[in-house]
């Protein structure tokens, strides 16, 4: 298989806030076609700053970020918005139109698309997130939180960014709602080929959905690789104050019995248990 060309390349990126705080230190990172990535780490480890650098809201103080071959420092915010979409954690911060329709159409209108095209994109984005037509004329402010989040995601989708970053998609949602949102992001990934990055503290969600995990701590990247192998690095996780999912912890504590440190699901655990038990009986 041909190795896919990276869509985003961050080279030696350092970011300093105007008051001098270093939020990112010498970050090297690539995102390529087919990536479904979880960005994890403590609050304040630099996850959100990194994401805002990736879509050009912040410009790196040192180093550079290339998105689709364009240097974020010299690319207009409009050009960036159609390449990397960023969904903010609190939907209330990004809903400012008086109807759901206008809210989703805001982006496409901003890049001055013809009216027919705007309409097509709004309908499509609404359909993807499962908003039906009855909501179009409603005020986003009146919708329940779960729906507000969907409107927020749809408003980003309407710009058709190739890469979508979602900041804490599951905060405040119950488990069922979280799974729904994640399933829907997975569909976007599989059926439409979007590169998806989620920022989250929810480790079972990471284990279940993300093929690749980037672990951040102290403004740096501590680990980057297949989720399985990142969760297997117990010492690195401990350094970043991150605990893997419970089932992974169980496997790790029983590693001497033959369980794999990178066990991600109950199903995998059961299979290992059965083969180990069978071997013991033999």
């Amino acid at each position: 298989m041909m190795k896919p060309e990276p869509y985003v390349v961050a080279e030696n990126v350092t970011f300093r806030y105007p008051d001098g705080t270093v939020a990112l230190r010498d970050i090297n990172l690539r995102f390529a076609e087919g990536d479904f990535v979880a960005l994890i780490g403590q609050n304040g480890s630099g996850k959100t700053t990194l994401s805002k650098c990736l879509n050009g809201l912040f410009k790196p103080t040192e180093g550079r970020i290339l998105v689709d071959g364009l240097d974020t420092r010299h690319t207009s915010i409009t050009k960036m918005a159609v390449r990397v979409g960023y969904v903010f954690q609190n939907p209330d911060h990004q809903l400012f139109n008086s109807t759901v329709w206008d809210e989703i159409a805001y982006g496409p209108r901003n890049i001055q698309l013809p009216k027919a095209e705007v309409e097509e994109r709004v309908r499509e984005a609404a359909e993807v997130v499962g908003l039906d037509e009855s909501t179009f004329e409603q005020h986003p402010f009146f919708l329940p939180k779960g729906l507000r989040q969907r409107v927020a995601i749809a408003s980003i989708l309407a710009l058709r960014p190739h890469m979508i970053i979602v900041d804490e998609p599951t905060t405040g949602q119950d488990v069922k709602q979280s799974l729904e949102i994640m399933d829907f992001l997975t569909r976007l990934h599989e059926e439409r080929g979007h590169i998806i990055v989620i920022i989250t503290h929810d480790m079972p969600i990471v284990a279940r959905y993300a093929r690749r995990t980037v672990l951040m701590a102290h403004s740096q990247i501590l680990a980057d690789g297949p989720t399985r192998s990142v969760f297997a690095q117990t010492d690195v996780l401990a350094e970043a104050f991150v605990e893997p999912p419970q089932i992974t912890q169980l496997a790790q504590r029983c590693a001497d019995l033959g369980f794999a440190a990178g066990t991600l699901s109950v199903q995998e655990m059961l299979e290992q248990f059965r083969s180990l038990a069978a071997r013991r009986r033999a």
Binding site: N55, T78, M80, G85, Q94, F96, N97, N110, I111, L159
Partner: peptide, 28 residues
Amino acid sequence: QAEKARGFDPHGKSLGYKLRQFVMYIIP
């Protein structure tokens, strides 16, 4: 930032356009 993330770029736009976008802040 959220407005920018949706491609709002005031550079080179008319004053009326800028004003309309500026007005949007107050609702959230």
